[in-house]
Amino acid sequence: MKLMIVDDSNIMRRRIERSQQFEELELVGTAGNGVEAIELFKRTDPDVVTMDLTMPRMDGIECISLLVALKPEVRILVVSALADKATAVEAMEKGANGFLNKPFTDRQLNEAIAELMR
């Protein structure tokens, strides 16, 4: 399965990259904002996406709807510091499959991805 990471912070992108220990996941690209993410998505056709919500240009929520429209079976893990319930519900409703709060430990991340691919 192919993984795409969307986060405007380089550190977070690399953290997710580093800590993902799933052999069946192959990182196909990282994007720093929604517009970049859509472009990359069309090119690489990933199966799993980790998605930040607060990003410049296009925000995560909008990006999720567009990705789901492009590929309904894509699995999206929201990785965000926005911890309020309305945002989480909004993201899930738009088609996200999981929600991970920043900051997170490697274990939390692995569990969230495992849950996502179950």
Partner: peptide
């Protein structure tokens, strides 16, 4: 400690940004 090996100006900015992000998320919650 985060196993990062890029200590550039940009990475430092990212990092304090993430801390601020966490504070903001906590407050929103």
């Amino acid at each position: 400690k985060m196993q990062e090996n890029d200590f550039s100006h940009e990475t430092m900015r990212d990092l304090v940004g993430e801390v601020a992000n966490t504070i903001s998320g906590n407050a929103r919650r």
